[in-house]
Nucleic acid binder design. Structure first.
Lengths: 207, 207
DNA sequence: GCCGACGGTGAGCGACCGCTTAGCGCAGCA
DNA sequence: TGCTGCGCTAAGCGGTCGCTCACCGTCGGC
């Protein structure tokens, strides 16, 4: 899967779009805290403390604790969708595009595990309207992967029984990396990305 | 994958081992609440209310809220391990045993989604000694699946690049069903079990 | 050199948390 | 009938939560 190395999976230092600096520090602190303990187990005092501020400082930049989660989730989903779109819209066979999409998506979930954890597992903590917005982004994520698989089936490259079910399984496999991946463990994000690309190509019966 | 229908995936009404009746009602209420909102977002008042009791009644049967989670997690892991062991120790080819293990394991995660959610996603809410106990059970779960895959490789039935990595991916795929499966959606637990068994056989290159 | 704007702090409000305790109603038994 | 044990409740304790508010230091513009 060496072609997959060309899309980075999001290694560039993120959150640069969050300004001013104090707001970004609070957001990064919130990502770490939410990923470690979960949204509901994290206190606003903990977030502010990690950012080197008093508890009240949080409310100068964010209206509520939930707005922090919403902003994190929105930016994270945008990034994940961007990674998939970049891979899906490249030139090449469906096989190459699917391998590229899976390996870069997995590299992001492993390499930026703290962010991915919050993005993928704390959706239920959002209110109804914020959750609805995020679910719209998730449908777009699903559509990108399904599109590549449909292309492969139409081109005779893939042999798939159930396109939607397989799409769901492929995404599920990639997303769950954020749950089990351990940055101190024996596997690098790149190695997991390559292995998963190979496994997914087998799942779709790539020729 | 019709042979997989023979192991049930845990359809029998569970929690029958929890007595007396009031303790079981509290535990079932806790499973529902933890699955819906997460452990930290669930209050002891909510659990007791769902069981039709006053908040204080909980502490007659359980020392703490965490003991409830521990008991749920322990019983759930025992059940999941039992399902895998039953499939792994049947007669037959590695291919048949792996298909059986995956389909019954997935049926349990889909059909008993509320329990599976708590079991698989609330591990971090346990204290150190309880978590260590549960992690021991998880290593046994991993060993059962890895055992079947190793048998298949040794018998020349499977073509696997990375046995441990593939084991991790197979388990990850099955476990994540508890996150996305919707009991009101278009798929039955049986259908997902059959699809996933087929996908996993492809992942291991079953002949 | 004074001034308003703004990012930040210390103290604390009301609510709600996990959990405890004193006591109540009732079934079983002499 | 009186006593005892037990499952359960009403009330509430100490603590922490998300969040607010009055105030402060700094810094560019005049």
């Amino acid at each position: 899967m060496s072609t997959a190395e060309e899309t980075t999976g999001g290694e560039a230092e993120p959150w640069e779009e969050v300004t001013p600096d104090a707001a970004r520090r609070l957001l990064v602190a919130a990502v770490e805290a939410f990923a470690e303990r979960g949204y509901h187990a994290t206190t606003t005092r903990d977030i502010a403390g990690r950012a080197g501020m008093s508890p009240a400082a949080l409310y100068i930049h964010y209206k509520t604790k939930e707005e922090l989660l919403h902003r994190i989730s929105r930016i994270g989903h945008d990034k994940a969708l961007d990674i998939l779109r970049t891979a899906a819209r490249r030139e090449g066979t469906a096989k190459a595009r699917l391998a590229d999409a899976v390996s870069s998506f997995v590299r992001w979930h492993a390499g930026r595990r703290t962010t991915a954890r919050v993005v993928q597992y704390e959706l239920d903590a959002l209110g109804p309207e914020a959750r609805a917005e995020i679910l719209g982004l998730r449908r777009q994520v699903d559509a990108e992967v399904r599109g590549i698989i449909e292309d492969g089936v139409a081109a005779g490259e893939f042999d798939v029984l159930d396109v939607q079910g397989t799409t769901l399984a492929v995404l599920s496999l990639c997303i769950d990396v954020a749950r089990w991946f351990n940055i101190d463990g024996p596997r690098t994000p790149e190695a997991v990305g390559d292995l998963y690309a190979e496994l997914v190509l087998r799942m779709v019966g790539a020729k």
